[in-house]
Design a protein around this nucleic acid. Sequence first.
RNA 1: GCGCCAGUAGCUCAGUUGGAUAGAGCAACGGCCUUCUAAGCCGUAGGUCAGGGGUUCGAAUCCCCUCUGGCGCGCCA
Length: 554
Amino acid sequence: MKKPLKDVLRDACERAIKGGELVSTTLPPLFLSVPKEAEHGDLASNVAMALARGERRPPRAVAETIVRHILDPAKILAEVTIAGPGFINFRFAPSYWWRCLADCERAGETYGHSRVGEGARVQIEFVSANPTGPLHVGHARGAVTGDAIARLLSATGHAVEREYYVNDAGNQMEMLGASTYARYMELCGRPVPFPDEGYHGDYVRDVAGAIRAAEGDRWADTDADAARAYMRDRAGAMLLDAIRDDLTTLAIGFDAYVSERKLREDGAVDATLDALDARGVVYDADGARWFRSTEFGDDKDRPLVKSGGEFTYFGADVAYHRDKLARGFDRIIDVWGADHHGHIPRMKAALTALGLDAARLEVLLVQVVSLTRAGVPVRMGKRSGSFVTLREVVEEVGADATRFFLLMRKSDAQLEFDLDLAKQRTTENPVFYVQYGHARVASVFRQATAAGVAGDAVGAADPSRLVETEELALIRVLAQFPETVEQAALEREPHRVVFYLMQLAGDFHRYYNRTRILGEDRELTRARLLLAANVQKVIRVGLRLLGISAPDTM
RNA sequence: GCGCCAGUAGCUCAGUUGGAUAGAGCAACGGCCUUCUAAGCCGUAGGUCAGGGGUUCGAAUCCCCUCUGGCGCGCCA
């Protein structure tokens, strides 16, 4: 919607400069905004105010000069006015909106998609939870956010790969093995002490039970270390499978699962350590090996190898990120829990130290989710093992509502998720409100078909029959969809799409309530069906970008 | 103590390079179904944008200080 007008405006400014009526030689970035007040038109520019200082003239006078040079070869404008402190307000001609509707119709299910990404290879890594237990709600937010951003990036012409980094090595896994072993032995009637920092969740017992069901008591008589190692691997594999299943219920999949253990076994971690060492940023102290990250802006040096000889999590993670960049992505995006924000400087420092371009790594922080039930907080605590799992939430409120609610807020802001609200099938629940908009149009079309109207190639209807203010306003909202998608993708902010859909659904419900779509006038009916069909389509495409279904009946 | 993020209507939150009279949903109050799904719509009310200073034609937005909340500052991951 903005682009054609931006061209007209730029053209006018340049002509004014060429004619010597503006002394500025460069233009500020042309920025068109949608005014809050309808009387201010469809789009407004503040360019005159931005230029006024350099011109040494009042903004309104600068605006007059620019307006005088506006040509409108395509006849898209109905009105151009100067208002307030120096805004130039534009109002589009109805014919422009009719053209927008036709464009929308023609674009089909790819309306809103674009090529701004120019085929850039982007990798997005998300979830990456340790396979030591089921996913909880916090993981779910990262999962849904990463997935939605991946969908947005694909729709805007990026070549996207989704990756899950499996932390299947290290201390936590050993703890899982020991915990599972202890539960297993318990079930065999030969209890051993439960590890101090072990995993207390009931799922460990379930996993141990499943192993025992498949293999009997034979591990009870095996060497304890060997048994623990076996339990670690079996439990890890089973829990990773469970995680995949959980993600599948949320319509989330990955192109690759990369194993930390494999990375270690392949020598990638050693090689990375050597590479850092070769650059002279590694030193030994207190029996450990340290990375001199303070030289690269971190506030502390960080250990890469523990005094026991094991790599730290950080050490392995540096190797993983080096590997990702080596795979040739133009950009790698990490979705992290906000409690990891302190890790960004050290990771960037390590990449810089390795001679890599740290700017290619982008870290998105996802803040915590607090669950409530009718306003009452649901207690969560991982340590106690009583956290609320992703599965429980999805089973209670459904995948669509889970995704919608987790995407309603900017990802770096804390989010309150009211389970009672999410499962309500009433007007208060925004996800049903939006989906209902889609279903409602489907219902109108069922009626239209019964009346023998829908068969008349609605796509070929004449948009110029749509003359009501509300109809043109609705088309305007449709016309804003492509730039909403683009912005959401480039800013990595899926919540913009959520808000857009709530607005579109609201505008449509309002229109529906006042205006009868199926009427006596056949041509008008067809034009309104065209409009309704495109509203429905944009809701559908928008929901698809969020990974949410668009039902025809509710 | 240092660092990061936040503080906008009773509640949950939007607010696009700094722009016009700060918005939405819910909750509250009052209306609308013989007509395409009332799972909807219309109206009313609701504000010291945490507080104070600064920058400028203009600040919720940028800078500084204070207060409040969350998180981080492990040879845990």
